[in-house]
């Protein structure tokens, strides 16, 4: 399974990668913003994306992605308010994780989405 991690923070990409590695997921590609992610999303099985990013934010990325792909997308965000979550889900996000999070939460999302 190939997983795409989209976040402008290299540290956050490492944190997510480490969590996924603990679950045996090692085929991972990274992007630093939504624009870069669109170029890499063609052959991945799950996407984890941040919301607030420069160049292209996570929500815009998902809207663009949904024009050509149904790949499951998990939004990782500090925006934990109900309005933000509903906005994300309406625009094609399948699930979300609110920072701060435990590594096991990310692995649970992967398991749910590949069922």
């Amino acid at each position: 399974m190939k997983i795409l991690i989209v976040d402008d923070s290299a540290v956050m990409r490492k944190i997510v990668t480490r969590a996924l590695n603990e679950g045996g997921h090692t085929d991972i590609v990274e992007a630093g913003n939504g624009q870069e992610a669109l170029d890499q999303a063609g052959d991945v099985d799950i996407v984890f994306t941040d919301w607030n990013m420069p160049v292209m934010d996570g929500l815009t990325f998902v809207k663009e992605l949904r024009k050509s792909s149904n790949v499951p997308v998990v939004m990782i965000t500090t925006e934990g308010g109900q309005a933000q979550v509903l906005d994300a889900m309406r625009n094609g996000v399948n699930d979300y994780v609110v920072k701060p999070f435990k590594p096991s939460v990310l692995l649970g999302k992967v398991e749910n989405l590949i069922k």
């Binding site: 923070s9 290299a10 540290v11 956050m12 607030n52 965000t77 500090t78 925006e79 934990g80 308010g81 609110v98 920072k99 701060p100």
Partner: peptide, 16 residues
């Protein structure tokens, strides 16, 4: 980078 993420998460959590 990590300290930037720290304040991002603290502010985001407080915002929620």
């Amino acid at each position: 980078d990590g300290v930037g993420e720290l304040v991002n998460m603290i502010a985001g959590g407080a915002k929620t």
